[in-house]
């Protein structure tokens, strides 16, 4: 089957040979990430999640991301988990906002700093 690598904007078209639920061969990737992506995507797709969360005391919401990709089927559940978080400024970039989201072992981390400006 043919899939499009989503690791970077180059978007390599990967040709993946799958036999019996197992990836046998990957071609068309410009870098190593394409190979890794194809092997994962055809078996258990994973996605990064980014979101914004309102912060008490800050004019701008905080942007956050999962520290690593999480299973694709958990995307909306992850957003649900983030919706319940209450935050207070100041927060610095890279700080952990939520540990081990949905038992994935992946933390939610801040991708920018917000100061008190309200």
């Amino acid at each position: 089957m043919e899939i499009i690598c989503i690791n970077c904007p180059v978007g390599c078209r990967l040709k993946v040979k799958v036999e019996g639920g197992e990836v046998k061969e990957v071609a068309g990737n410009a870098c190593k990430r394409g190979d890794t992506y194809a092997r994962q995507e055809c078996v258990a797709p994973m996605r990064m999640v980014t979101a914004v969360i309102p912060v008490e005391g800050s004019r701008t919401p905080l942007s956050v991301k999962t520290a690593a990709p999480i299973p694709k089927h958990l995307l909306l559940d992850c957003m649900e988990a983030l919706a319940g978080i209450k935050l207070k400024a100041p927060i610095s970039a890279k700080s952990v906002i939520l540990r081990d989201v949905l038992g994935t072992g992946v933390d939610i981390i801040a991708t920018k700093s917000v100061k008190i400006d309200l």
Partner: peptide, 9 residues
């Protein structure tokens, strides 16, 4: 642009 995918190159 709070999404990811920048800076790989």
């Amino acid at each position: 642009c709070i999404h990811n995918g920048f800076g790989l190159h």
